[in-house]
Simulated scan of single mutants.
Amino acid sequence: MTEKERRTGRDETADERADRMWGELIQEVRVAQMGVQILFGFLLTVVFTPKYDTLDDTDQTIYIVTVVLGAAATGALIGPVSLHRLVSGRRIKPQAVEWASRLTFVGLILLLATMACSLLLILRVATHNDYVPWLVSGVVLWYLVCWFAVPLWTRHRYTE
């Protein structure tokens, strides 16, 4: 295969494409990492507040699930950095980009779950109302539309 045949519509080689995609992915991960790390940091402090001991068993369970989800999301969203560091210079950047992309996607799903559980816990404690699950469901639906439906629709609509 000639160099010209290996080039994509952007007139870039496979290595150039992997470099570009890696840069784009890391920029995306930075945004998600910041959010999940701040959220996780706040979650870690809750157990040390006097209010925690007054939570009923259900709310404490929701809290524990939320912390575990936050830890898992943090791991998945920091994973691409570790992956890059461990495979750097091994001439496998296209594969590293693919795996980093998968980790990022898993991290986004876990972040969505963490945010939903956080919202559920906060609204349960703040309001004690029966509409809380409906409100949280509406927010989760909004996340699904913004994070997945619109991008998938755009990909479908504008892909040849």
Rank of each mutant, 00 (worst) to 15 (best):
M1Y: 06
E3Q: 09
E3Y: 03
R7E: 15
R7G: 00
D11H: 12
E12G: 00
E16T: 06
A18M: 08
E24M: 14
Q27A: 15
E28N: 14
V31C: 02
V31G: 04
V36I: 15
I38A: 05
I38E: 10
L39P: 03
L43F: 07
L44S: 09
D57G: 06
T61Q: 08
I62E: 04
Y63E: 05
Y63T: 00
V67H: 10
V68Y: 07
V68P: 09
L69W: 01
A72E: 06
A73S: 13
A73R: 02
T74P: 04
G75R: 08
L77Y: 09
I78F: 15
V81K: 03
V81G: 11
S82D: 01
R85N: 06
V87K: 09
V87D: 06
S88Y: 11
S88Q: 11
R90K: 15
R91M: 13
E98L: 10
A100P: 04
L103S: 14
L103C: 12
T104S: 15
V106A: 14
I109P: 03
L110N: 13
L111W: 01
C117W: 12
S118M: 13
S118N: 10
S118P: 07
S118Y: 07
L119V: 10
L120F: 07
L123N: 04
H128Q: 13
D130Q: 12
P133T: 02
L135V: 15
G138K: 07
L141S: 12
L141N: 01
W142N: 01
L144T: 12
C146A: 13
C146Y: 08
W147N: 05
F148L: 15
A149W: 12
P151A: 06
T154A: 13
R157G: 01
R157I: 01
Y158N: 02
E160C: 04
